[in-house]
Simulated scan of single mutants.
Amino acid sequence: MQQGSLFFGKDPLVKELLGTELPIIQSPMAGVQDSALAIAVCQAGGLGSLPCGMLTIDTLLKEVARIKAATDKPYNLNFFCHQMPSYQQETHDKWQQLLQPFFDEFALQCSSQPNGASRMPFNHDIADALEPVSPPVISFHFGLPEKALLQRVKSWGTKVISSATTVKEALWLESHGVDAIIAQGVEAGGHRGMFLTEDITTQIGLAALLPQVVDRVNVPVIAAGGIADSRGVQAALALGASAVQVGTAYMLCHEAKTSPLHRQALKSANAEHTALTNIFSGRPARGIVNRVMKDLGYIHMSAPAFPYASIEMTQLRSVAEKHNIDDFSPLWSGQNNASCKEISAIELTKQLMAF
């Protein structure tokens, strides 16, 4: 079969939507990539993505400039759009007390940092900076920004996509004007895009979620979660997806900035065991199980709200990693990490369509 014929023969509207040669979107993965990975995927014919939720505006613009200088292909900028809660000192006091034994191991003094959260939601300041750029695609996690901000983005001609982890979330996104919906199966690595519920028992596998979403919405659906090779791509398209989003499979690619410790974990036998946890950031996210997840429990009710839980854990992570210890590192990974390859992202993107 000619590469891409199943995809574009079935849903030519998505080629118009994404402007790509292939129905492959590289998942934005904060902490393990920069523009280099996005550029490689764009050059291969997919939609490269840049995670922007932890970037300053200055760094964001520099990264976008690098993408535009390297390729004239479409690209995607990804942002969080969570509601930023207030810092609750009492909550952090309890959390720090719980973590104190770990700090004692390193003779480390835990410090309170009310302004230490690094994940900021999309806002008008970011929009001011991006308006002259008019990015081709912007994707959101945790729902959508408020109406005026969303309409501002769409006025640039930018296509807007966002993640849904349930049918209810997919219907909500469609009713609020997205151009496409990412159906995020529970297999996916990193943060769950859930925004209408905090109940992780509502999170289901892609094979169950995808056809339900496809049957209920009238916009293109992008499949995400556990897709790491051409068989996964074929299966997703057969279940009604118009495109796929692939993340974990790219984490060992040459262009990824995955740390040596994280790469080591992905290649180890421990990678077979992943779980959803909220202890690193305050929101459920899938990663390779490590010591702190086992010791505290994967989901802990005392964890501060997103993104503040990262303040204390980052302090432990920083000192532990200096000793080559990943006990306190968020080793984000999907369930299908056995398919990770140490090759160019260009080659991997082409292999995903080798059917």
Rank of each mutant, 00 (worst) to 15 (best):
G4R: 07
G9K: 11
E21L: 15
E21F: 13
I25C: 03
Q26L: 06
V32T: 09
Q43H: 11
G45T: 01
P51I: 02
D58L: 12
E63L: 10
E63N: 13
A65P: 09
R66A: 15
C81L: 08
H82P: 10
S86Q: 14
T91V: 14
F106S: 07
S111C: 13
S112V: 14
N115Y: 09
F122E: 02
A127T: 04
A129G: 07
V133S: 03
V133G: 01
S134N: 13
E146F: 12
E146A: 13
K147Q: 15
L150Y: 07
L150S: 04
R152N: 09
R152T: 10
S155V: 07
T166A: 00
E169I: 05
A170F: 07
E174V: 06
R192P: 01
G193Y: 01
I200H: 12
G205H: 13
L206K: 04
A208N: 13
R216Y: 10
R216W: 11
P220S: 08
A228R: 00
A228Y: 05
A228G: 10
V233F: 05
L237K: 04
S242L: 02
A243S: 03
V246P: 00
M251G: 00
L252M: 08
C253S: 11
A256G: 01
P260Q: 03
P260N: 05
A265V: 06
L276S: 02
N278M: 04
R283W: 13
P284F: 01
G287N: 04
R291K: 14
L296H: 04
A303E: 07
F306K: 02
P307C: 09
A309V: 05
I311D: 08
T314D: 14
S318I: 11
Q335L: 11
I343D: 08
